[in-house]
Design a protein around this nucleic acid. Structure first.
Lengths: 256, 256
DNA sequence: CGCCAACTTGATGGCTGTCAAGTCAGGTGG
DNA sequence: CCACCTGACTTGACAGCCATCAAGTTGGCG
């Protein structure tokens, strides 16, 4: 139970404080003491609602904040001069947005809400200052950035070595796991993104995504009804994800 | 000229101090004052030679150091249980290795020297401590991590949207630019990696890489002699890199 | 009820993977 | 010096996966 010693603190403020946020174990406050969390709270003066299809930030804008998603769902995408674009990630509650902007002090991608969302604005300069004073915060922030790098390596692996159905299986398993971590069903959820956005993220065309969904359904692995997904066979999906067949030369070398 | 007031300091030590390293503008010491650089120097007790094909670290090993490349050339790669693997990057002098290990406190990829190299071992716990005390160092370290994330997004874009020759053109231009930043020729250099490693990084098979090299040579864009590359036409390579043809629907919408 | 975006499904083609054979460069030993 | 060997590379023929193009279906909304 959160303490409420001061009646003047509005319920809205209490609801949005890190210390009473049910995402604190997933988000930036992870591992902080009560006192440290209060200090982090004090940085975060702005919390905004972002409506579906609205930009949280756009490529080229000056970097000032990183953002913690309190609720909702986002995508980030990169646009090249020649018109190419690609979704670089989907972010859900408890995850941070904007880390791409630190290096150049300007955002390098666009962040768009895929559903009505709530976001905490964290002034980066003040976060750096606090993380000079609070070792646990510093450490955790570094871990978050490092994990983002590792996650990207996983996507590179997916794009570089997996075939279409392997990619989609990996994508569904990843979503399932992240929903589970947030207390939602691991087997049943609604996709917030279109087939085209999934395809962009996975380096596939929307028709290929659609065909893979259909095939998974025929195989009894999932049931799909537009954006509603029901995963029926997680081991089966894992098998597809790992269905890579090493070349005979490797089998010979390894099995001899 | 580096100062040599104390005859007892061996030339080897002087040569390897951050303050006299000619990579300090590219590497971690960037932006530090003399005094701050000295404090950074004090962290770095170990500098090792890594021979060609030796591992600097391997996936699964406990994370303790990040590494700055003083000279030489590395690759990092990830190996999946099913035998798939992919090169996630090539690193050259002045760049950092090991950032992937912070998040889980164990390395998530392998780092292998592609030529005889020299590496500075930076104890991460002490780097964190110092970056709590030295704001410029903290800021620069965050920038390096952020740029790594942005770089990975670039690779995702390459893997997700580009065709084989576009990928190789982007790869060559990237190498050229990085060699230039290090004072080498922008037009002529030796590849440290095999066609297979290039292919793994670019999500292609070695035969495809080889064919693309041959085609670039026929087109007069480069001259290739095994690992020796001479870039003859940088604008031409850029054109290939951006040779994406937007679908007619986009042309109609944009051009009407 | 009509409209539109999102999605599904089918037919076809092209890029790149696969398999195979041959070439080249560098190193070793006679 | 030269023959030989090996790993890296090149080139060719073919096939398969996925992109492309096209048409039709579904669901949401005014």
């Amino acid at each position: 139970m959160p303490l409420r010693t001061d009646k003047e603190i509005s319920l809205a403020v209490i609801k949005t404080a890190c210390s009473s946020c049910n995402l604190r174990e997933l988000c930036l406050p992870f591992g902080l003491s009560e006192d440290e969390m209060t200090r982090l709270d004090k940085l975060i003066n702005v919390r905004k609602r972002i409506k579906r299809n609205e930009h949280l930030y756009q490529a080229g804008q000056p970097f000032e904040f990183i953002y913690a998603i309190r609720s909702g769902f986002f995508k980030t995408d990169v646009l090249l001069e020649d018109g190419r674009d690609q979704v670089t990630g989907f972010q859900m509650a408890g995850e941070l947005l904007g880390l791409d902007g630190i290096g150049t002090e300007a955002h390098s991608c666009n962040a768009v809400a895929l559903e009505d969302s709530e976001v905490c604005y964290i002034p980066f300069a003040r976060l750096e200052k606090l993380s000079r004073e609070v070792q646990t915060l510093q450490r955790h922030f570094h871990k978050v950035m490092s994990r983002e790098i590792v996650r990207d390596h996983g996507v590179m692996m997916l794009l570089g070595t997996m075939r279409a159905e392997e990619r989609l299986a990996a994508f569904l398993l990843n979503l399932s796991q992240r929903f589970t971590a947030r207390g939602f069903s691991h087997a049943e959820f609604n996709l917030r993104m279109t087939r085209e956005e999934i395809g962009s993220y996975l380096g596939l065309k929307l028709e290929t995504v659609s065909r893979a969904f259909s095939h998974f359904q025929e195989a009894g692995l999932i049931s799909v009804q537009q954006k509603h997904i029901h995963i029926l066979n997680i081991p089966g999906l894992k098998e597809i994800m790992n269905s890579h067949q090493p070349p005979l030369s490797a089998v010979r070398a390894g099995g001899a």
